[in-house]
Nucleic acid binder design. Sequence first.
DNA 1: TTAAAAATATACCAATCGGTATATTATAAA
DNA 2: TTTATAATATACCGATTGGTATATTTTTAA
Lengths: 194, 194
Amino acid sequence: MNKAERTRQFIIEKAAPIFNTKGYAGTSLSDMTESTGLTKGSIYGNFADKDEVALACFEYNHKMVREAISNEMAQFPSYRDKLLVYVEVYSNPRKYPLQHGGCPLLNTTIEADDTHPRLRALAGEAVVKWKERLVDLIEAGKAIKEFKKTTDPARTAITMIALLEGMIFVSRATGDPANGKAVIESIRNLIHEL
Amino acid sequence: MNKAERTRQFIIEKAAPIFNTKGYAGTSLSDMTESTGLTKGSIYGNFADKDEVALACFEYNHKMVREAISNEMAQFPSYRDKLLVYVEVYSNPRKYPLQHGGCPLLNTTIEADDTHPRLRALAGEAVVKWKERLVDLIEAGKAIKEFKKTTDPARTAITMIALLEGMIFVSRATGDPANGKAVIESIRNLIHEL
DNA sequence: TTAAAAATATACCAATCGGTATATTATAAA
DNA sequence: TTTATAATATACCGATTGGTATATTTTTAA
């Protein structure tokens, strides 16, 4: 890594949590210069514009979540346990580095869907791939008879995603941990009935 | 309604869909003057600041959704059918005036939770009240033996909310109606198993 | 160690931001 | 119809926005 690559990475690491909490429209260049200690000249020497920083930050935030999930998942041979890792990681934002601002997929989709087509596209592809990974896990579980053969992989996968993001929504909206826990219980139920 | 009250209402009606699509940080005073044809002087003559417009617009957007739901619900005596109204309204954004930008509860919560405490508080209270209305419906259904006595009203209510908002998320993220429909099917299942 | 190249800082730009004081116009009660 | 008052428009404010041209410093390879 040469200097420019290190700086680029440094900017991403500092700006990513800001974009995830304040959103694209809510994050300014001064937020970035402040958090990095760098100047605008330095930032624009490494990125074409604000858009490019935002896109890179989204990918960084999303990668952090994915890595937390797959690291945990590697510990469990059972597919049911692998699926339960999502529940564990998403319901313990303190313990796992979903860090500042919650799920970047949810934040980006809700803010960008009507206003920022490139971010919207990135988030959309990420959700589609997430669904595919879940479908693969559920089909693998069916193949070794861990899950029932009546289980619908596609419907289960997308329902799990909806429940996980919906759980984040009710937690953040009400601020009451009991609401999040109630949804968690429903997700556990869903996984145990596969 | 005197002139000022009519103008205030007019501003809200014009600005509400903009706030719901572009968010609080993304909506500017010029957006409002443009969409209303009024000047800043007129807007600030009827509202103290941008905050007050945003708050009024959130309440307007939320009221529109609530009224669409309760109008439909009045047609059905069965509590199961009443619950299914949510599915109908939330899955047909064209037919019902959830209108521009999707569910204001989801949009506001996701944008405001880290940045705008007053909006956050409004959205939070709205979700709590929504849950309470659902709990009431489910308990009423249990009272007349339409629902099983083993049904957990609180958990069912909050899970339904999570699924409905999660459904909006997967629809908007992927842009694929099939994903939304798959979640819808899961919500219908949930309601039929009560 | 040096010199060319790359990276960063400085200083600036026009445009837009939210907001306000004041002038003008429209309303509404007498 | 008049007149006091309320509502709206005009013209402006300083601060901040995203972005850039250029000067200065730091890397990096010879």
